[in-house]
């Protein structure tokens, strides 16, 4: 299965700069159990997006008119830390966001972004702050993956991303499809490894081994 290729994105970039914004805050666990992946957007960031009475929290950037529907998020350090829940990525994408720029990401969240075609860009913390300042008015920001550049109001920030991941994003490739092409090689490796590390393999079928 292929995804929508990622080339360039242009639009408002909403600041969400608090450090260590964890995936529990991005999507509550009970929502991911009770809600279809495609319907998670109303619950994205709900702990900080809404007031206790359910109204929009005015302190949350995506609630401001200039950032509604923004395709880019600007995050703080360690964005997406914590739980491995992939619905955090689905919830963010459900808001129409295609790219997150931050000084650092939770490693598992970052991997989940790539699996779904959400582009995580790492910039130095000072560059992130500069970008946030330029974008604060709602001025359009352009992310060009091919050129590995972020531009806004005549400013330019360069980023780097692994070649494999860049190609996968540009072409909308799916890791599972790619891995399936390796199945012959995987079987060959496994055959050899069973000789090399017989202790690492479990060879009894379920039910054949005695269970307590």
């Amino acid at each position: 299965m292929s995804r929508e290729p990622f080339r360039t994105v242009t639009g408002a970039a909403a600041p969400l700069l608090r450090p260590n914004l964890d995936t529990d805050v991005i999507i509550r666990i009970d929502r991911m159990v009770s809600t279809r992946p495609a319907a998670l957007a109303p619950f994205a960031f709900e702990a900080i997006r809404y007031c206790a009475d359910g109204s929009d929290n005015p302190d949350f950037a995506l609630n401001h008119d200039r950032f509604r529907g923004a395709p880019i998020l600007i995050g703080g350090p360690n964005f997406g830390c914590g739980s491995s829940r992939e619905p955090a990525v689905w919830a963010i994408m459900g808001l129409g966001i295609r790219c997150i720029v931050a000084p650092s990401f939770g490693d598992i969240f970052r991997a989940n972004c790539h699996q779904n075609g959400l582009l995580p860009i790492v910039l130095e913390e000072t560059d992130v702050a500069d970008l946030a300042a330029v974008a604060a008015s709602g001025a359009p920001v352009t992310v060009d993956l091919q050129a590995q550049r972020v531009t806004a109001s005549e400013r330019v920030w360069c980023f780097t991303i692994g070649a494999n991941q860049r190609v996968a994003l540009l072409d909308g490739l799916d890791d599972l499809d790619l891995a399936l092409r390796d199945l012959d090689g995987i079987r060959t490796w496994e055959h050899a490894d069973r000789e090399l590390r017989p202790w690492a393999w479990i060879t009894t079928r379920p039910g054949k081994r005695s269970t307590a």
């Binding site: 491995s84 829940r85 992939e86 619905p87 990525v89 598992i108 991997a111 989940n112 699996q115 779904n116 494999n164 890791d175 599972l176 790619l178 891995a179 399936l180 390796d182 199945l183 995987i186 496994e190």
Partner: peptide, 18 residues
Amino acid sequence: FGVGTSQSTQALATQVLA
């Protein structure tokens, strides 16, 4: 290490992860 749904699916199908 922990993974998300997509990588879990991939490992179920292929027993490998990039």
